[in-house]
Design a protein around this nucleic acid. Structure first.
Lengths: 153, 153
DNA sequence: CTAGGATGGTCAACGTGGTTGTCCAAAACG
DNA sequence: CGTTTTGGACAACCACGTTGACCATCCTAG
């Protein structure tokens, strides 16, 4: 039986998570995206390359459609999203990433890859793979939940 | 070189973190503490067994003293904190955990221990120790930063 | 074909939790 | 003893979540 206090485990996971996210956003800020917040990554992920609607986005993020609408407003003002009418359904407004949005998504993925490579050099690729595999084992391989926005609070 | 996409790493860390936090709060809610939010754990941790002041709490949480004051108001209303005048300094108001506050902190630690034991049975105690050690190696053994409140947003 | 329900989006009002600015009482210090 | 520093509170404001209401549009049952 290990003697490590149990409450340290979530803290260590969170520190790792936070360092990765902070590193990505520091680099993105350096490259011309100073207004992106950690939360926006989840939003981009929830919108996806194909776009979606405000209602569907709200469902994926676990918030009301109104809250999703406000989030879209903000990212639209920053130039990362655009709204387009759906020719097949006059009620719907398709929310899509702009070129700038696609660019930042692609760039984020690259930076995450680089950061993961750094981790691999520090603890070794084997240990990193083991770490990831163990996390999957213990948390279950469920699809990632994006409903983070109101989760803290 | 591993082929795992880099952006999955922070997600896996976050899922682990979130599952632990959610499990603790689900159990606490079951035991009569339905109003506690994930964030409150950081607040309790920042206050500590000995108590602090609003200004110092704000420093530890990385927020203004006014924001710290509001947070204290809320947890005071819920019966977890109490304010007491400092006999040695009439300006200061000592913020301390109530008996209820101490109880929930102790209980949380127990639950975290139980959850860690569960993880140990699923991936084995050595792998769990390795996971924790690797996280420390890669993130640095820095003291835990509690300045989480405004971090997302 | 039309009446009625379901769906997508927006507006308004509100609560919470953060911010800054101001002010006051008490302590610390020259 | 006057001045500066400190701890706390109050106010106004902003970001972001909530509900409730409303409207246009689509879908479907009769």
């Amino acid at each position: 039986m290990s003697t490590e206090a149990g409450f340290l485990l979530p803290l260590r996971l969170f520190v790792g998570f936070r360092q990765l996210i902070d590193a990505v956003h520091a680099e993105l800020a350096r490259e011309g995206h100073p207004d992106l917040r950690p939360l926006h990554g989840f939003v981009f992920q929830a919108i996806g390359r194909d776009g979606t609607t405000a209602v569907e986005l709200g469902r994926r993020l676990g918030v009301s459609k109104q809250a999703a609408g406000k989030t879209i407003d903000g990212l639209e003002r920053l130039g990362y999203l655009e709204r387009a009418s759906d020719p097949a359904d006059a009620r719907r407004k398709l929310v899509r990433l702009t070129d700038r949005g696609h660019a930042v998504l692609t760039r984020s993925a690259q930076i995450f890859d680089e950061l993961r490579a750094e981790w691999a050099t520090r603890i070794g690729p084997e240990r990193l793979r083991a770490l990831e595999a163990d996390l999957v084992t213990v948390t279950g391989a469920e699809a990632f939940r994006l409903d983070v926005p109101g989760w803290f609070g």
